[in-house]
Design a protein around this nucleic acid. Structure first.
Lengths: 224, 224
DNA sequence: GACTCAAAAACTGTCGACAGTATTATTTAT
DNA sequence: ATAAATAATACTGTCGACAGTTTTTGAGTC
């Protein structure tokens, strides 16, 4: 029944499976079986197959020569490459955003930063991180470059996979808040170069942290 | 008969349709019909549908709310964004490549540059451009960052679509050769910053040229 | 001739089926 | 028991079919 739900079944599958991949509910290396997924969604294999094609292309899955699909394992080398790439792109986005941003965006960032700060002081890392993600998303949306935006969104999702597996929702220091604040300052001041540098610096710090945790995880994989 | 050809039918479809999109054999705005494509490949619609999902994700196609698939139109704004993005990424790739490149890669670039030069002098823009593409591909491959590599490959394909539609296989000046040469010098000298700058400059020049042609094309679309 | 409404044709989303192949379980031989 | 051989399963790639929509065609009207 094609008209059962407004949203094509295939898209529902993509969104849901992707969410599970990001949050580590499908474990790295695990095999995904089409019939199994199909039965989970109460559908035939067709929508599932189409969803898997897309998720493979997004970098979450890999396909064996036999056609079987596996969750891509977490690898230090991939993480390093993702972080380098992402840092550079977020920097670019910040630079472009500094030029294009309107007052409303700036105000949104300010409100966001305030929320982030109170959350951090309160020790609520969970909320603080959510504010952080929103902060970045606002900048990316404001950069005015669609291909960059889409690429960065995909990268952020792939990086999230590492974060969630590491349960790296650990800390959210005052230092982090300060980093965000200096990014916002540069944006508000319409200083592309400064904004770019501040963003690159911020991403690098955060990357180093995650990579550190990842190394520990990969050498002694606690069964999280 | 799943074992008819070693290569899954779906992948053949992706490759072939993509090639047609890049070369403008499917025109911007044109609708792609699944049954039609299926009959062209002598298959059922299943492999075609899966191929279309991927090509949509690659940025070549767009889907109407009705599910119909169209070739994405050529738009000035998209081209501008693609070029900005690509320039930045090629610059990054060059920078990384300057650090990672081994002697064999350098020699390959040198041979490539020589071929490009003789082709340019001979006035064979077609071959010269192919050398140029190969030149860039070599650098991208050498940058050592897989996500960057994949992204850049996708971008180059999308940009090619503009080039081919514009039939911008026009000129290949000595100046172009010089730009490539300065990139190579920086790479051989292991100077990341210089290589990055040279690459950015080169891409910008070439982008400006294409954008110029595109503006003319969009205002007076000759039926190429 | 332009316009409206209805019948016809073309399509997409989804399904269930089948053939061939890879995996896994089981049996047999050492 | 261990390993090789074989039978049983599970799964992927592809196909053809059908229902519900959208688009196109055509008839009839002003």
């Amino acid at each position: 029944m094609p008209s059962a739900s407004a949203l094509p079944l295939q898209q529902r599958a993509v969104a849901e499976i992707r969410e599970d991949l990001i949050h580590g509910r499908f474990r790295p290396g695990e095999r995904l079986s089409e019939p199994e997924l199909a039965s989970r969604f109460q559908t035939s294999r067709s929508p599932v197959r189409e969803a898997l094609v897309q998720l493979e292309h997004e970098g979450f899955l890999e396909r064996a020569k036999t056609g079987r699909v596996y969750v891509r394992p977490l690898e230090l080398s991939e993480a390093e490459q993702l972080f380098v790439f992402r840092g550079h792109l977020e920097g670019l986005a910040a630079r472009l955003a500094a030029e294009n941003m309107n007052l409303k965006d700036i105000q949104r960032l300010e409100a966001n930063l305030a929320a982030m700060e109170t959350a951090a002081q309160r020790g609520d890392a969970r909320v603080a991180m959510e504010c952080g993600a929103e902060f970045h998303r606002t900048i990316i949306d404001a950069c005015g470059n669609r291909p960059l935006l889409e690429c960065l969104e995909g990268l952020r999702a792939r990086v999230s996979r590492y974060r969630y597996i590491l349960a790296a929702i650990d800390e959210f220091s005052e230092q982090r808040v300060r980093e965000h604040r200096s990014i916002l300052s540069a944006l508000a001041a319409r200083s592309p170069a400064t904004a770019e540098q501040a963003m690159i610096n911020h991403v690098e710090v955060s990357s180093r942290e995650t990579l550190h945790a990842l190394k520990a995880f990969l050498s002694a994989p606690e069964k999280v």
